[in-house]
Amino acid sequence: MITFEHVSKVYGEGYRPALAEVTLQIDKGDFVFLVGPSGSGKSTFLRLVLKEEKASSGTVQVAGRDVGRLRSWKVPALRREIGVVFQDFRLLTDKSVFENVAFALQVLGRPRHVIAQSVPETLALVGLQGKEKRRPHELSGGEQQRVAIARAFVNRPSLLLADEPTGNLDPETSVGIMKLLDRINRTGTTIVMATHDDDIVDQMRKRVVELRDGRVVRDEDRGVYGSAR
């Protein structure tokens, strides 16, 4: 699903590289934790996958596409295969829960009957049935993150990127979010989650890739948060 080969990213001349010679393979259906201290290159990794940034050297392949050589007008098609969730949810505050999720389908020009069917389905999947008409500020943090996950997943992407999705949530709520991500992973969706949350990583026992100063220093299946602290 994602292949990095000797990928480096330097943001400016004279700066330390944000990623240095990263080679990594993530297969379809994987659940991968990306751990490491702030500034270790986790966010840069995600931005390269989304083509928000361009690698300084090396090749990035996502869903069979050579992202580095992708023409700019083809970038939207790449992003349609990727769902993204953030620490700060990024919901539209003047739209209801239903409208927030439907927004992702509307901008892709999906017909009305498709929206009417898949939005309630996805809201049920994330456990928000009955709250379609609420506004984001009427929801708890955990519920808001569920809306964000529903929006990222409603188009059934094959890859879901999560950047510190539990960073603003208490431990109990975080567990609920992780159960939801696990459920989505079981539908065959690849999940890459950047996180600082050692409890969660230790509980889930998934593949762990640790970055430090832009380099992969550890990559183990069923790993723990470990030394990255």
Binding site: P76, R79, R90, A104, V107, G109, N155
Partner: peptide, 12 residues
Amino acid sequence: SIMRLVGASRAL
């Protein structure tokens, strides 16, 4: 930014 993330075309 959300439109970009979900893959809306530039024209849209």
